[in-house]
């Protein structure tokens, strides 16, 4: 509540401030389903978007985001407010997506290309291009290109990028979340970035 008042006093629009979820969370922790429904309404797009960025499939993203909300309701008592409610919920949906991706991986045989990608493949040896392939792009266009390039990465590399660049997790936290070593995280991140640079350069070439 005080955060909203301060932004109003500073002359900024109240819409720029993140919504204060605390009263709704407390009410929901007391069993108020209407308060929980309001929380769903506030954050449903963000939670769905995170699931979609990891799964790249609309139906999977809808199902997993809904499952995350159900789990959140069941575990509301565990939420102590150490992070924001949105961050806490995002962690739940990320874990559900990772579980789902692991199941997918178990069910399909890995291709040679995927194994090559896992180890870094030819991308590790490719020459460095210092020209910025995204320079001068309007923000909306840049986001679209990044999204298209992300769609061409394997799930494990895309996940590392999402967790590091968008969720702003450190290597150690990513390793814990993904259940792998820090070295693997660093290796995957390095490969994913170089691949992204290559894909963005290709998109720039195609445009010109």
């Amino acid at each position: 509540m005080s955060a909203v008042q301060k932004t109003s006093e500073s002359g900024l629009t109240p819409a720029a401030a993140p919504p204060n979820d605390s009263p709704l969370v407390k009410a929901a922790q007391g069993g108020d389903m209407r308060a929980f429904e309001e929380l769903v309404a506030r954050h449903r797009d963000k939670i769905y978007a995170r699931a979609f960025s990891m799964m790249r499939n609309e139906q999977d993203a809808i199902d997993l985001s809904q499952e995350a909300w159900v789990k959140a309701w069941q575990r509301l008592a565990q939420f102590q407010g150490d992070s924001s409610f949105a961050t806490w919920l995002t962690r739940i949906v990320i874990n559900l997506c990772l579980d789902q991706l692991r199941k997918h991986k178990r069910h399909r045989a890995e291709s040679i290309e995927e194994m090559d990608e896992e180890s870094g493949g030819v991308e590790r040896q490719m020459p460095v291009v210092t020209i910025n392939p995204t320079a001068g792009l309007e923000r909306g266009e840049l986001r679209q290109r990044i999204d298209r390039a992300l769609g061409q990465l394997s799930a494990s590399h895309r996940t590392v990028i999402v967790l590091h660049e968008f969720e702003e997790m450190e290597y150690k936290e990513i390793a814990k979340t993904m259940g792998c070593s820090i070295g693997t995280v660093m290796s995957r991140l390095f490969y994913a970035r170089r691949r992204m640079a290559s894909l963005l350069a290709d998109l720039k070439k195609a445009e010109s």
Binding site: R44, S53, T134, R139, L142, R143, I146, R193
Partner: peptide, 16 residues
């Protein structure tokens, strides 16, 4: 360069 490109944020996706 790649890192700064990500700093522009993600494509906005709406629940369908």
């Amino acid at each position: 360069n790649t890192k700064s490109a990500f700093a522009n944020g993600e494509l906005e996706v709406k629940l369908p």
